[in-house]
């Protein structure tokens, strides 16, 4: 699945915005997505992608940051030894 597009959709739903308005490189705060919404999105990302968001606070300033993190987590999960 297209990680960026999916994450864009999740954030748009959570923050009551249109996906098109979420430019991947712009800070989320500027787009009207506050920190609580980002926490909620992290929650939904875990469910959607079957990954676990790390406990250490990874800086998630932009949509691209989140998509990159999700790609890394999915790769780790697929690459882990059986």
């Amino acid at each position: 699945m297209d990680t960026l597009a999916t994450v864009q959709q999740l954030i748009a739903e959570e923050a009551d915005l249109k996906p098109e308005d979420l430019a991947p490189g712009r800070p989320l705060e500027e787009l009207g997505v506050d920190s609580l919404s980002v926490l909620m999105v992290a929650f939904k990302i875990e469910d959607t992608f079957g990954v676990k968001m790390p406990d250490e606070r990874v800086p998630l300033r932009t949509l691209q940051d989140i998509a990159d993190l999700v790609d890394r987590l999915v790769a780790q999960r697929s690459g882990s030894p059986k």
């Binding site: 609580l36 926490l39 909620m40 992290a42 929650f43 875990e46 676990k52 968001m53």
Partner: peptide, 10 residues
């Protein structure tokens, strides 16, 4: 669930 909604507290 290991993680619950961050909205519970507020």
């Amino acid at each position: 669930r290991d993680r619950v909604s961050p909205y519970i507290v507020p």
